[in-house]
């Protein structure tokens, strides 16, 4: 999911042409809660992340946003990730582990 991957993808260039157009994005938590966003292709997804976090009342550092399994970075935009209309972003909670706390 590094930058070069996007460059390799010929579709990315086509999509970035209409960077000013908006697309709908669905953010889904693991409990199935859905929040919909309408966002410009050129808008940084970090904005969406912040908005989502404040909406669900969580600290943005305690949740992770994934697109097709890869974490969304602050600089990513729908255009850079090649997102399509009605695409879905997964929200995952932070995972911490040290010992088998549920195991006796």
């Amino acid at each position: 999911m590094s930058e070069e991957d996007h460059q390799e993808n010929p579709q990315g260039e086509v999509k970035s042409e209409d960077a000013q157009s908006t697309i709908n994005i669905k953010v889904v938590s693991s409990q199935g809660e859905e929040v919909f966003f309408k966002i410009k292709r050129s808008t940084k997804l970090s904005k969406l992340q912040g908005a989502y976090a404040s909406k669900v009342g969580k600290d943005v550092s305690s949740i992770r946003f994934l697109y097709d399994g890869a974490r969304i970075n602050d600089d990513d935009t729908p255009a850079s990730l090649d997102m399509e209309d009605n695409d879905t972003i997964d929200v995952m909670v932070e995972q911490v582990g040290g010992a088998s706390s549920h195991r006796p």
């Binding site: 966003f37 309408k38 966002i39 808008t43 970090s46 904005k47 009605n86």
Partner: peptide, 25 residues
């Protein structure tokens, strides 16, 4: 993320391009 450059530049509202609204698709 420091604020993107274009945002610190004053400009008319109708050019605001980073606004997004949650909405049922």
């Amino acid at each position: 993320p420091t604020e993107p450059m274009e945002q610190s530049v004053p400009r008319p509202i109708h050019q605001e391009d980073d606004t997004y609204v949650s909405e049922p698709i």
